[in-house]
Amino acid sequence: MSATTAPHEHRGVLSQVSGYLAMLVVVLVIALPLYWIVAASLKERPDIYTVPVTWFPDPVTLENYDGVRHGVPFLDFLRNSVLITTVLTVVQVVLGVLSAFALSFLRFPGRTVVLLFIIAALMVPSQITWISNYALVAQLGWRNTFAGIIIPLAGVAFGTFLLRNHFVSLPTEIIEAAEMDHAGALTLLWRVVLPMSWPTVIAFTLITIVNEWNQYLWPLLMADDSSTAPLPVGLTQLQDAEGFTNWGPVMAGTVLTMLPVLVVFLVLQRHMIKGLTAGAVKG
């Protein structure tokens, strides 16, 4: 990244200054709302409702974080979120890798048709599937079960597309050499293809974790209570329970819902951004 910016270095002072100015504005616009909800979550109840607003929590209190558990069973929602996200991520990454491998390295009749069939699923907005999937899952008696939340979301179109694009870009010599050794197809996948593809696999894994953690409408339709509902749905219940009269615990719940995925992102953002920008730049 830094190598390509070299020519910009000796650009004028003016653009430097405007750059810093823009950075300042951006920091304010993006960070202020985040600061505001964290601050509110640490305030005592009367301090949230002052006009003009109170900028700093004084005294700092953790009672809102305690209050989260009294309003709704927040720890249950957290457990459900972890479970749903973990299972969906593992399933999607495995299915994505296997599908992309088959479509890149195995030769069989109808391969192009299968590839197009999978990619075309990207064009189907999830909204059009809600109604019929809801009816099907309800009929199976799967509402308020993890199966009902997880299985309809488990198919992988985007990941198959992303991973296949990477697999076909691998140097063919290495793969042909592996074939010479009479390595079995799965050995080829495990010993040759995957070790050369970890950055893409990790990028897809991270994107999946973020997507599934933030999954909202489908779990909202599937889960009525804390036995299966994940955090964003639980947060809505907290919002309904405490609403406008007690924002403190609601803000604490909001912070807790945002935090895990934010931490994952801050630690591994480089890998995730790589996955999102792949294919966008060169067209």
Partner: peptide
């Protein structure tokens, strides 16, 4: 700037 993109839309809405 990128951070809000990974946040839960429901949580951002409540915030």
């Amino acid at each position: 700037v990128f951070a809000p993109f990974v946040l839960s839309g429901a949580a951002v809405g409540v915030a």
